[in-house]
Design a protein around this nucleic acid. Sequence first.
DNA 1: GTACTCTTATATCTGGTAGACATATCTCCG
DNA 2: CGGAGATATGTCTACCAGATATAAGAGTAC
Lengths: 193, 193
Amino acid sequence: MRSRQTRTAVLGALSIQPMTGYAMREAIRTTLGHFWSESFGQIYPTLAELEQEGLVERGEGTRTGSSTFALTPAGRAHLRTLLADPPQPDPPRNGVLLRLFFGRVLGPEACADLVRDARDRAERQLAGLAAERTDTDHTAHADDSPYWLLTISAGEHAARATIAWADETLATLATLAAEGHGGEPPTSSKETP
Amino acid sequence: MRSRQTRTAVLGALSIQPMTGYAMREAIRTTLGHFWSESFGQIYPTLAELEQEGLVERGEGTRTGSSTFALTPAGRAHLRTLLADPPQPDPPRNGVLLRLFFGRVLGPEACADLVRDARDRAERQLAGLAAERTDTDHTAHADDSPYWLLTISAGEHAARATIAWADETLATLATLAAEGHGGEPPTSSKETP
DNA sequence: GTACTCTTATATCTGGTAGACATATCTCCG
DNA sequence: CGGAGATATGTCTACCAGATATAAGAGTAC
């Protein structure tokens, strides 16, 4: 059985409106992008499974060979069950922190570059979320939008936290660099001088 | 070739001190746990690859059949290269936000439970990080510890952001519940009343 | 002193996933 | 009206995570 969380995302997307597999990927990428991701490799097999189980219905698409999927009543009931399941924790993987942890090998300046990049990304995300926030306010789905705004708010809190941490960290790294904890000698110098 | 980030984590761990595959998994789980994870399925094959390439050296372990791995000079140089690579963004997957996004189907009370759980987890993480912080201060690796503290600080910022967001969100959900946006009707009621 | 069990360490194996790739349909311009 | 590029759709493969099997050592009772 495919992961329950992917099924949740797929059924949830169809609970907003019927759509094709490709459209679903786009919707997930643009709207859920800051906290979720699915790839074709999951979406299509999952839709096929759900069709087998009678939880979604396949309809004609606009193009030959394409299909639009819609939620059946059974599918809607199943979605409620899935949403009530406890969330599965996903293993964290933060490439910036991994590099920073071994920062002594890399040196303070390179670490600072890394942190500045992360800060920039957070700023851009904050701007993107602000745009989404106004979009959501102007869009029709009045019953859903309060919940959508909660997820946007989560992204904003996280981004602001990243920015605050980055500023603190840059200050710390500056003093580290000044004190001459300059990391390991660069490759030009010998191991045994 | 196995993911460069896994190689980075493995070589980085050996840069602290030589260790066995099992010890490495433990070290990654306990020390890097709040921002990284690796499983045996990656660690052992990666170690074998790195040995082939002469980047690590296999030594005798304490038990029959066990091996201790140590960084070679070439391995240390390779680690520097890997750390300089730009971090790979990992696709986000936040189960709590996924459920909250479809919160209309689930109802405000169940959503509040979810958010309270997330808040509890963040509180516990904050406590754990505080413990790690004092540990790090008292441990020998003086050159590494400034960098380790930076990663701990990142975790603390993130956890505090989660707590602040949770408090805001719980207030919002309370008003939603009061206003009677009670989600979809429970399964007992009919679709067309 | 010896045999048995329980815990801990190590390695492999399987299902699931991400993203590259192949294919087909539209649209716009000549 | 025909063709080329853009866009939409679906499949395939290599890789990864975690569960599971296997083996060693320590402790305990007789």
